[in-house]
Design a protein around this nucleic acid. Structure first.
Lengths: 243, 243
DNA sequence: CGGGCGTTTGAAGCGCGTCAATACGGGTGG
DNA sequence: CCACCCGTATTGACGCGCTTCAAACGCCCG
């Protein structure tokens, strides 16, 4: 059976599921105090004991690892509702930093797992979350393995735009992270990200408005270019509507 | 606290844990009939309903995804004791094929999850497995993001050599997969893999003996080059001994 | 021993990285 | 409200590492 790899659609689906998952697991964080993290500040550090899990309440968080000299890899961005550290065993495998000003809650790993063990309802939700995290990591592996700069960028923008909470008034997409963050997430340099956006703008597909907003002019083109490839272009792109 | 990113060591650790995990979960497969899969044959297909999980009993399995035209990405190799499909929800996100002649067992997803739900002992083992799968995927993301061809190759070889079941008689390492498999796993072309091995051979670090064996001449050099980077080179490389 | 596929080697091209200069934009202070 | 300033982003020129295309080699099995 032929399966159009409609990344945008796939992702919308995954996002939806994750939201549900987070909704259910969210109750574990309800009693915790809200913490405010200023943009750029760290929430936890790679290598430290993972004594807590965090829930993003507001803002965007990046997870990254530093390898040798100055090489930084961003392995994920987390948005309101998402959990940080669900798939950890003992130590943090990443540093988490606020991309924008954030509000978060935390619970101890022990009490989190106790609650999961106690509740037959929560357990499948948690397992679901872990599976989705693996699936997301696998998708990113594909992106980093085989997509070129333009495909990576388009795929990234489509994914952002597919988020249900994306601010999409009149085709204007908020991009909270800066160019360097995007570059480190997509395995490119800041210059290549910049040039690729410029190229997309010249073809009137997306047009930057300020540093943190993108006007999505031609979404179907964007989906086509996002490397979910196949020749289904016209059929699939209509299934993603942002209005 | 400074943390040398000793990939080889990390991996040996992870492998060890996974073995334990598989050991415990293995009992779920004990009653299933053994199936024989010839090298190159598929075990399951991307997109199909994931009605079963598989356990590799003998041989090596590759998981891959095809994206557009002829681009193939191998997302993982699985070895004896490993489970295939543990992190899936409904559909296979990859095609699984035997790299070498394999023996596998299967159980239905439903009965697998029933057993997991029933057993308080198995559940943490299963969760552990999911977490390790995510961690492995994240490590691969780092490799694909930031390592060059030589670092990727060395990292791959070290990882193979660190497997407890690696046939390492007299420094000879069995490499069951062919060059194309390695290339698609490391995000390179077959030519680059070949050239990089040749270069390593000329520096007397690893020397190929036939298509499926590598003589590890200078393991500490190999670990240094594997891009776990840092300046800990001399201290860390001694911690991996294969004799 | 001989064919065929997997692998190695070579030569040429290109996409992305690197380095450097310029432009922008958002925040501050006059 | 505008001028200034600094960090971020853009643009340009150039080089390198990997890919691409093509040919020769060699391992493995009949």
């Amino acid at each position: 059976m032929l399966m159009p790899n409609n990344t945008a659609f796939e992702h919308a689906q995954a996002t939806h599921d994750r939201m549900n998952g987070a909704q259910s697991l969210a109750c574990l964080f309800m009693t915790s105090a809200m913490e405010t993290i200023a943009a750029g500040k760290a929430i936890c550090w790679e290598g430290d004991a993972a004594k807590h899990l965090f829930q993003v309440v507001e803002g965007v968080v990046r997870l990254h690892r530093i390898i040798g000299e100055g090489r930084r890899v961003i392995t994920a961005f987390h948005f309101p509702g998402d959990l940080i550290g669900a798939s950890l065993q003992s130590a943090f495998l990443f540093t988490a930093e606020a991309v924008s000003d954030c509000k978060i809650r935390r619970v101890s790993r022990k009490s989190f797992h106790d609650e999961i063990a106690r509740s037959d309802a929560l357990r499948p939700v948690y397992i679901n979350l872990l599976c989705e995290e693996t699936a997301a990591a696998n998708n990113q592996m594909v992106l980093l393995s085989k997509l070129n700069a333009e495909e990576r960028l388009c795929s990234f923008i489509v994914k952002l735009a597919s988020r249900s909470d994306a601010k999409m008034q009149h085709g204007l997409l908020r991009v909270p992270m800066n160019r360097q963050d995007i570059a480190d997430y997509l395995g490119l340099t800041i210059e290549t990200v910049s040039r690729t956006i410029t190229k997309l703008a010249s073809r009137n597909i997306v047009v930057p408005e300020g540093r943190h907003d993108l006007r999505i002019v031609n979404l179907s083109r964007l989906v086509q270019l996002s490397g979910n490839g196949d020749d289904f272009s016209d059929k699939t792109c209509h299934s993603v509507s942002l209005h």
